[in-house]
Design a protein around this nucleic acid. Sequence first.
DNA 1: GAAATATGTCATGCA
DNA 2: AATGCATGACATATT
Length: 536
Amino acid sequence: MDEPSAQFQDEDLIDILWRQDVDLGVERDIFDGCLRQREEETTRARETELKRERELERIMQRLQKLDKETGEFLPSPSSVNSQAVPLSEALHSTVFTHRSPVTQNPLLSALLFSQKSQKPPSQEQAFSELLSLPDLQYYLDVLESEASSLPLEDITEICHQNLPEPQRENSADALLCDITQTISDSFEVVQPLSSLPSDPVEILETCIQTFSDPGNSTPSPSNTIYSCSTPENQVILPKHQINSSDSTLSEFCPYTINTSSLSKPEQLNSAPQTLIQYKERHVQLGFDDSASVGSVDLETSLYAADTFSNGQSDKDELESIQSEYTDLLPLSLHSETEEATLCETITYAHHQTQNESTPEYSQREPQANLPTTVRRVHRDEQQAQAMNLPLSVHDIINLPVEAFNEAISSCKLNHTQQSLIRDIRRRGKNKMAAQSCRKRKMDGLNDLEEEIEDLKREKEQIKEENERNTRELHETKVKLRKLYNEVFRQLRDEHGNSYNPKEYKLQHSTDGTVYLLPHSTADKTNTPTEDLAVAV
DNA sequence: GAAATATGTCATGCA
DNA sequence: AATGCATGACATATT
């Protein structure tokens, strides 16, 4: 423990000798070996740091240009698509959800959210514990900034070269595997994972290509991520997109929505917006005249939009829609569950899209082969439009009483309009009631029929059991008769002669004794006399 | 064209 | 009293 003092003594001695030798023209660094070694180490470290900073700067300059006024790096128009979402931002906004697989992976979370200066304090705080991994930060920095321009091998190489020695020993491939696996997990991939490249490097390359390719990036800042080979009619909705807009939507948040009716890519982005709009309409009891007049109710939208806008009435399609419609009706057997709400919402979005594409459809005459339901719904809808009612038929029927009353009172409706809107509501309610009533009746009939079938089966079983018992009784009687005859044949009197069956018979008493009785006596009394009865 | 079926509507009673 | 719901009865359209 005397080393420090000994070292100071050595240095003092060296200092003294140096001062002596300075006078002789000798430089001190010849003597100060320890100090010189430390200075060399510090210089090397600085050079390494400088080299690293130059490398980073070089990378940044490839993607950004320096704003001469502010000193900040600005995105370069040539290298960064103005509409494209940066990888870090896209990844961050996509994975920053409660249930995102990325956030469940501390390694990738640390990688993705390590840019302290660019993140809001709340997010930074959430991952503060993970930010103490400088090597991971640096890895992300390089991955993020170079992803769109550098081959993957270069990224790996840069990271590998600049990582500190101990971290370099951790296999970069293992880290890469972890990252790529997590990235692939973080996507709501429609296709089975088995169809993804098995090589993690390929996965990462594919993802990087997806983000860096301007043609693949979504035009809106919604950060919607498509799977690498997304089917045309499916959209992957990041959970945050709905959560951030309306928390209640997350209750029935559909991560995958079938948008077979959407044919254009830009319509894909309209789906979640429409969901939110519809939700807002419900919350705010949307009374926008322009929207209301042009709107149609759920039923009409389901039938008319598909039937009219397509210009074809494929029977199978119509039946399928009708089935969906029946399932969707909140009145029909379904209580207002989240599931029903989800279906309504999705269907409404579907309707909105169709309605936008064919705004004039409601003015067409109903087709002759349409079901009665469609026609009558259409009639109400037409009346509502003709009278300029501020609500869609769907809203008129399904709004709560308070909201409905508030709506019709706030819209200054005349007597005819109020009468019509109340008629539509009453008929709609009663229509639903009649449907559920008939459904209950049919269910009751089905239950009764099932009960009848059960009783018939039970009757058959009892009948079979009765026949079986009768058969067994008969067989037992036959056996008893045979046994009786066998016993009677073996009986002999004192002379060794057999008894005549016509004169005698065997009788079984309650105590188990069998008596041989003459027929005449047995017929007269059940009590055998001592002189006549013979115990067998 | 008649019968069966499906659906909407009205009237009524009940909670 | 107003409202929603259930249900029988009737009307209408479709099969």
